[in-house]
């Protein structure tokens, strides 16, 4: 069960009217290494992970939804006041025809979110998958920061990138916890 707090995890401000940025940001919304994929993967994997680290997947999976909401806010702010002509110029013509001003779960290339979520039921395989996913999300944020000219968006993206670092750190610690010898009987 969840409680919803009606505010964003970190303030989202957009200073430059650049609908093209929305096309790039949508990668983190409905892309393979985006926030939706991360949230669904962790919340799904948590059932078959040892109970010591189940709470970690639960917490991080929940936080990913808060990140999803931040990305959605950025995309919405960048597109809500754009004319259909401006959306077309920004490469969002196809999107507009299919979804209007609605945001949608697809990647920057327009491929629909296809639920290709890894979940193996093997704790080490799943945690290594999650570490890799956090590093991929971190690099995606870096590439978006590199092509952005809006210091306010860069600030929010810098926050999200730092969260990927912290998540990666915690997953690495989870692996260490699972590697520890538990209740080992000492044989003399």
């Amino acid at each position: 069960m969840w409680y919803y707090e009606k505010k964003l995890q970190y303030p989202v401000r957009v200073g430059v009217c650049n609908p093209r940025m929305a096309k790039f940001l949508i990668e983190q919304y409905g892309g393979a290494d985006g926030e939706l994929a991360a949230a669904l993967r962790y919340l799904n994997q948590r059932y078959t992970i040892p109970s010591r680290v189940m709470g970690l997947l639960n917490d991080i999976g929940t936080e990913e939804f808060a990140h999803l909401e931040m990305i959605a806010t950025m995309v919405y702010k960048l597109t809500k006041d754009a004319t259909p002509e401006q959306l077309k110029e920004a490469g969002l013509g196809d999107h507009y025809v299919d979804h209007g001003k609605s945001i949608y779960y697809h990647n920057a290339a327009g491929q629909k979110f296809d639920m290709c979520i890894q979940s193996k039921g093997d704790p080490i395989a799943d945690l290594y998958e999650d570490i890799a996913a956090e590093e991929k999300a971190r690099s995606t944020y870096q590439w978006i920061i590199n092509i952005s000219d809006d210091p306010l968006i860069k600030d929010s993206l810098g926050f999200l990138r730092e969260r990927e670092i912290v998540h990666s750190q915690r997953f690495r610690e989870a692996v260490e916890l699972l590697k520890e010898e538990q209740q080992k009987k000492k044989v003399f």
């Binding site: 970190y10 870096q142 590199n146 810098g158 990138r161 730092e162 969260r163 670092i165 912290v166």
Partner: peptide, 19 residues
């Protein structure tokens, strides 16, 4: 901590555009 995205200075690794 909110501004940095982490509670821990030791985990803070900011990014700047290398280009």
């Amino acid at each position: 901590a909110l501004a940095h995205g982490t509670l821990w200075p030791g985990l803070f690794t900011p990014y700047t555009n290398p280009y």
